[in-house]
Simulated assay, not measured.
Amino acid sequence: MNNILEDLKLKLNITWEDQDELLNHIINSSKEYLNYIAGRSIDYTMPFNKSILLECCRYDYNNARELFEINFNRELIALQIKNLVTEVNYDIK
Rank of each mutant, 00 (worst) to 15 (best):
M1G: 09
N2I: 01
N2K: 12
N2H: 09
N2L: 11
N3H: 08
N3T: 11
N3D: 13
I4C: 04
I4E: 03
L5M: 10
L5N: 09
L5P: 00
E6M: 12
D7W: 05
L8K: 03
L8D: 06
K9V: 11
L10C: 06
L10N: 11
K11Y: 13
K11V: 13
L12M: 14
N13A: 13
I14C: 14
I14M: 10
T15D: 11
W16P: 00
W16T: 13
E17V: 13
E17A: 14
E17L: 15
E17K: 11
D18R: 15
D18P: 00
D18Y: 11
Q19G: 08
D20M: 14
E21Q: 14
L22H: 09
N24A: 07
N24T: 15
H25G: 11
I26M: 12
I26W: 07
I27V: 07
N28Q: 15
S29I: 04
S30W: 10
S30A: 15
S30V: 13
S30R: 13
K31D: 06
K31G: 02
E32Q: 05
E32S: 07
E32R: 05
Y33C: 02
Y33N: 05
L34K: 04
L34S: 01
L34I: 08
N35D: 14
A38C: 08
A38M: 10
G39N: 06
G39I: 10
R40L: 05
R40Y: 04
S41G: 07
S41R: 11
I42A: 01
I42F: 02
I42E: 02
I42W: 04
D43R: 05
Y44F: 15
M46F: 13
M46K: 12
P47K: 06
F48E: 06
F48R: 08
N49C: 02
N49M: 02
N49D: 02
N49K: 03
K50W: 04
I52N: 01
I52S: 02
L53A: 03
L53C: 03
E55M: 12
E55S: 06
E55K: 07
C56D: 02
C56T: 01
C57R: 04
C57N: 03
R58N: 05
Y59F: 15
Y59I: 12
D60T: 13
N63Y: 02
E66L: 11
F68H: 01
F68L: 02
F68A: 01
E69I: 14
I70S: 01
I70H: 00
I70C: 03
I70F: 07
N71T: 03
N71C: 05
F72E: 04
N73P: 00
R74A: 11
R74C: 03
R74Q: 10
R74L: 12
E75M: 04
L76Q: 05
L76A: 04
I77W: 03
A78R: 07
A78S: 07
A78V: 08
A78P: 00
A78L: 10
L79W: 06
L79C: 00
Q80N: 06
I81S: 01
K82N: 08
N83Q: 07
L84V: 01
V85K: 08
V85A: 12
T86V: 05
T86F: 11
T86K: 14
E87N: 10
E87I: 10
E87R: 12
N89E: 14
N89G: 02
N89L: 15
Y90D: 04
Y90H: 08
D91W: 12
D91H: 08
I92E: 09
I92Q: 07
K93T: 01
